[in-house]
């Protein structure tokens, strides 16, 4: 089951490496970020905002905001895995937490007849993801100079984020999907409206607007349901 994961992250890793090179990062910087952060979408955002010379805090906060979802994954996964048996296991299983390892474990654990040890299954998803991401980033950086100069690499990051967004909305529970879509639409519109604010501050503002609208919609749905 590991090989689809390895293959799945590979193309994105290649583009990450190439984009990092384009943004003027060194090979060491590019690879270190993959090793230390190990979270694809946040790394893309980092490279994109670094290249756009966004304000330092905007860059850090946006990347962290994107990774907040790992808390949810961890909360859900810890129910399945139980407490760690030692600090090393705690560290390794935490470091291996990604969209890919979480989603494939969450699906795998629910398959009828699941019998392997859950931790091994989870790490069996995490390790190929890790290998694929690390090697693809390195290769992408090295072969990045072969990309024809007239290819619009500026579109790579937005298109990747767009595909991520759609797959995220697709994976949402049907009950929750409209609210998540509203969060995205509200944040998008706010970002377009606030695009001219200095230091990419519009980004943080737009995120707040999106989340605020979603919470408000959720509250009013709850009230409606309680009223019935």
């Amino acid at each position: 089951m590991g090989s689809p994961l390895l293959i799945g992250v590979f193309p994105f890793g290649l583009i990450y490496g190439a984009a990092a090179r384009e943004a003027g990062l060194s090979l060491t910087q590019t690879v270190s970020m993959s090793l230390l952060v190990f979270a694809g979408s946040a790394q893309f955002v980092f490279v994109e905002l670094w290249q756009n010379k966004a304000a330092f805090l905007v860059l850090v906060l946006t990347c962290l905001a994107l990774n907040l979802r790992l808390i949810i994954y961890g909360a859900s996964l810890s129910q399945e895995l139980g407490p760690p048996r030692g600090p090393l296991e705690a560290l390794i299983r935490s470091y291996m937490l990604t969209d890919e390892s979480y989603v494939s474990s969450a699906i795998g654990f629910r398959k009828p007849g699941f019998s392997s040890r859950k931790l091994l299954y989870y790490l069996g998803a995490g390790l190929p993801t890790w290998l694929g991401w690390q090697s693809a980033g390195l290769i992408g950086y090295l072969v990045g100079s072969l990309i024809p100069p007239d290819w619009p690499m500026v579109m790579a990051a937005p298109l990747i984020f767009l595909a991520l967004l759609i797959s995220l909305l697709r994976a949402a529970e049907p009950k929750n999907r409209p609210v998540k879509c509203s969060a995205a639409i509200a944040a998008g519109l706010a970002a377009i409206a606030a695009d001219n604010l200095p230091l990419n501050l519009g980004l943080l503002l737009a995120i707040a607007v999106g989340v605020g609208v979603a919470l408000w919609l959720e509250q009013s749905r709850k009230k409606r349901e309680d009223g019935q």
């Binding site: 907040l68 760690p84 705690a90 935490s94 967004l165 929750n176 609210v179 998008g188 519009g202 607007v209």
Partner: peptide, 30 residues
């Protein structure tokens, strides 16, 4: 995932965490 004790996050925080990723991605690309 790191310890035996599970932190207790308020419901509102858990709910907003769920909406942050779509908001971030949409704000970035729009």
């Amino acid at each position: 995932l790191g310890g035996r004790r599970r932190p207790e996050l308020p419901w509102l925080v858990i709910r907003s965490l769920d909406y942050i990723p779509p908001a971030v991605l949409a704000a970035l690309i729009a």
